[in-house]
Design a protein around this nucleic acid. Structure first.
Lengths: 234, 234
DNA sequence: CCTTGTTAGATTGTCGACAACCTGCTTATC
DNA sequence: GATAAGCAGGTTGTCGACAATCTAACAAGG
């Protein structure tokens, strides 16, 4: 009996690869909100028929980052200021819950992984690669969800994260300069290692509120652009 | 200028209809957990080609009630006891939040709608149609989410509800007798009309815990069947 | 000038057929 | 008899073509 246990091999369907490609394009902001996805054009670019592409798009619609209107087209979702407010306020509630569930389950492996991901954030920050920085920060943040041992909660957070990542990417793209925000994670990690759960929860809430103001101001700007930019869908 | 404003007309794609048909079959328990969906067979029964059927199935996979394994098939998700525990505990947290958001927005229209839905539950209970009873109860419960004015929260709850509905349907099917549970809703409605938000939240939590014990016991039974029932997938 | 009908082009939705893949059985080999 | 190779049937994944629908431009009529 071998000690080694293998993980399932990667999905080898075109569909899965298309999903990954499209998701990345959307979450990094390469595909802008409101933009229409032309099936024929994309399928030709990817050297793939429309069938797997369409199936991939259906998945992303359900994932909440694409929106489909029958016979009209499939579009990258529009980002309204209210959406960001909504997502953030729910995120706060979920954070609270995730910390509560994770708290009694913290062990050495948890702390190690926490450090590992924190390190990844620092490194990404140094590299000035904003996309990677966002991904790393979200991965750090996601640890409490992975550790909470509640599959429904984890899945819910991952859906929420897709949007948050999109919002952040747009934000970054608009500002076009990296954000430091390092020390915030420093205290976050420290509190998760500590003994005061309430303090950790409180910090998570406040931590969120910090970047929030800035992001929201940006969102209101987007809102104006979007209201008169319906014709951008082409 | 007419005062009447029209709502968007219904989706007329085959895909949308297939989604609705399949979802209903799953949520009412006509398609059992773990069961495999044969694309050719279903497409012939529905007199539809496989393309829209497959797209519909992709949507339901993302909705979390189907699971897909490449080149092996698409299956109705298995119901594990842990899933029910997870879904319920998250539901409690979301209820709390939904009540908090809805509370300051309650108005006459809210109370009217609350009564309307409560009445629908009573009527479904009298009719002994368990499926309709479940749907009515969930619709009553969903009002606080619709009123909370947080689209992300609403969407999250709807996803969660799909599963809860599936669990309930299985439960009912197994017991094969209707559940009264009327008075529980009576107090729930009364508290939502009252002035003590904390009391309403507390009741929502306890209300949930009530049916929960029973449902969980049932789930453990399912678990055993499922572990040796992988070959039921045909 | 405004409204309504028509038409052409482009795009999405659907179909039937083929290719890739998995599974179980049979057969061959030791 | 056990194991491995190979075949056959069935199912999923993908493709290219056709049908249904939408959009925008233009013409006709008031």
């Amino acid at each position: 009996m071998s000690k080694l246990d293998f993980s399932p091999i990667a999905d080898t369907t075109r569909r899965a690869e298309i999903v990954a490609l499209l998701r990345r394009a959307i979450l990094t902001g390469q595909l802008e909100p409101g933009q229409k996805l032309n099936e024929l054009r994309i399928s030709e670019q990817m050297r793939v028929s429309r069938a797997p592409l369409r199936e991939a798009m259906r998945e992303l619609v359900q994932e909440g980052i694409l929106a489909s209107i029958p016979y009209a087209g499939t579009f990258v979702i529009d980002v309204a200021a209210k959406d960001i407010v909504d997502a953030y306020s729910l995120n706060k509630v979920l954070d609270d819950f995730a910390i509560e569930l994770t708290w009694p389950q913290r062990d050495q492996r948890f702390f190690d992984e926490l450090d590992r991901r924190h390190e990844a954030v620092k490194q990404a920050t140094r590299s000035l690669d904003t996309t990677r920085q966002i991904e790393a920060a979200l991965r750090l943040h996601g640890l409490i969800y992975e550790w909470a041992d509640n599959s429904v909660l984890l899945e819910t957070w991952q859906r929420l994260t897709s949007r948050l990542q999109m919002y952040f990417a747009l934000h970054q793209r608009a500002r076009n300069e990296p954000v430091p925000a390092e020390d915030l994670h420093e205290t976050y990690v420290a509190l998760l290692k500590g003994t005061d759960m309430r303090a950790a929860q409180r910090h998570a809430r406040e931590h969120i509120d910090d970047d929030f103001e800035e992001l929201l101001a940006f969102a209101r700007g987007l809102e104006e652009r979007a209201s008169k930019g319906a014709e951008r869908r082409r």
